[in-house]
Structure formats: C-alpha cells, structure tokens
Simulated assay, not measured.
Amino acid sequence: MKTCELSVIKYTLFIFNLIFAISGVGLIIAGSLVLAEVGEFSHFLEGKILAPPVVLIVAGCIVFLVASLGCYGAIRESYYMLMAFALCLLIIFVIEFAVGIAAATYKNQFQSVLKEAMTDSLSKYESSKSDKIAWDNIQTKLECCGVDGPMDWSKRPPTCCHPTRENAPDPSPEHCRNAKPGDDFLYNYGCFEELQMKAESSSKVLIGVGIGVAFIQIIGIILACWLASAVKNRE
C-alpha cells in the first residue's frame, strides 16, 4: 500500500514539475512582454517601476531550473533533493511576496513621481537631446501631447499633431504650434494619463501571472514535503 502511495505521489509531483517548468517559461514571456511594452518609455519611469518585469524574468529562469531539480528528485526518490526543492520553492515564494508588497507600497507614490519626472523632462525639451527624443517618441506612440494636455507647451512640437486624414501631409510646425485645443489635427489628451494607464495595465498582467505561479508553488511545496516524508518512512 505504501509503495503504491509513493508511486502516486512521485508521478503526481513529476507531472506537477512539468507544469511548473512551463509556468517558468510563462513568467519569462510575461515579463519580457511587459518590459517591451513599458520599457520604451523608460526615460520617464523610475527603476522601481521597471524592476517588477525584470524580477519576473529572473524568477522565471529560476523557476525553470528549480522545476528541473524537482523532476529529478521525484524520479530518484531522493529525500534531500526533494527537501531542497521545497526549500527553493519557499524562498522564491517569499521573494515574490516581498516584491509584491514593495510594488503595492510604491503604487501610492507612482502618480506623483511620474508626473514630476514628466514635467521636469518637458522643461528640458529644447536643451536636452535625450528629453526631446523621449517626448517625440511618447507623443507619437501614445498619440498624446504634453503632460496634462497641449497647453503645457510654450512652443508646441510637431509631434503633438497628426494628419486629419489618411495619406495627408503632416501639419507644418507653425500650424501645430498655433493650434488651439479642440482642433482635429491636435492630440488633445495629455501623455501622463496615457502612460499611467499603460503602466497600470501592465501591472495587472504581472499581478495575475504572479498570483497564479504563487498558487502553483504552494502546491509544489506540499507535494514535495509529502513525497519526502513518504520516502523517509519507507527507509
């Protein structure tokens, strides 16, 4: 009976670790997609905001390696390897939990920090090449203008405007500079709101993936300890 129980637990844990390895690949993909989505606007975002997707990619690599250890430990029915596997899962879970708490705490400061960084960067548009490139990029990609709107600019750049119809020429710099809010060729929404929505959307993806993997980790810790206990009792 004990041998049958041991076999059931062993193969259950083996199958679980295959799923766990796939979840590690999922973490890497999710982190990479979010980093690619938000990373192009890194000029306005602090390292604290870009850290979670990077942590997720690193965690995905570690999860894949740990899952391989779990598969090997399950097949070999090694008590020490199984306990090492459970301990690794626990450490990863604690790190993910700590990063989640840090991200939730920083979320309250996110709006003020982001707006301050964008306002400061906008004031350097004429004097700093990096700020000019960053603003031209974000206004073109997110179809927005200024921090809160087009009136933030004293000399409005051409990237605040767009053609009124397909294949039409871009409005001239002078035409764009003299445009009034409400004109159909002027982006009338601020970039702060657009970038904030993009960052929050990305954070929801990270939170969802993180919670799913954390749930899998808890199951893995339970199965590993159960199998390790069964192996020890048999010995």
Results as ranks from 00 to 15, higher is better:
218 I>N: 06
8 V>I: 13
82 L>T: 09
173 P>K: 05
87 L>T: 15
178 N>S: 09
208 G>V: 01
9 I>T: 14
25 V>Y: 09
45 L>N: 12
201 S>F: 10
58 V>N: 12
122 L>W: 06
109 Q>H: 11
14 F>L: 06
52 P>I: 06
194 E>R: 07
90 L>W: 04
38 V>W: 01
107 K>Y: 04
73 G>L: 13
105 T>H: 06
133 I>K: 01
193 E>M: 08
122 L>C: 03
171 P>I: 14
1 M>Y: 04
222 I>M: 04
177 R>A: 12
131 D>A: 15
99 V>L: 15
6 L>I: 10
136 D>W: 10
95 I>E: 13
145 C>E: 13
66 V>S: 02
139 Q>L: 11
62 I>W: 10
53 P>N: 15
209 V>K: 09
119 T>N: 10
204 K>F: 14
142 L>C: 11
188 N>P: 05
101 I>G: 14
129 K>L: 15
233 N>M: 00
207 I>R: 02
4 C>A: 14
84 A>N: 02
87 L>D: 06
231 V>M: 02
87 L>F: 05
43 H>I: 11
129 K>R: 13
141 K>Y: 08
84 A>T: 12
7 S>F: 03
75 I>H: 02
154 S>I: 06
181 P>S: 13
233 N>F: 02
101 I>D: 15
203 S>Q: 07
10 K>C: 08
105 T>F: 01
199 A>E: 09
74 A>H: 00
12 T>N: 06
106 Y>Q: 10
166 E>H: 15
230 A>F: 11
59 A>Y: 03
13 L>G: 12
35 L>S: 14
26 G>P: 03
131 D>L: 10
154 S>G: 04
180 K>R: 01
218 I>C: 10
225 C>Y: 09
227 L>Q: 07
157 P>S: 01
106 Y>H: 10
94 V>E: 15
211 I>Y: 02
145 C>I: 14
167 N>Y: 10
120 D>T: 00
97 F>W: 13
179 A>R: 05
204 K>H: 10
45 L>P: 13
200 E>G: 00
175 H>D: 12
153 W>P: 03
205 V>S: 11
221 I>A: 03
142 L>G: 12
113 V>N: 14
152 D>I: 00
21 A>T: 01
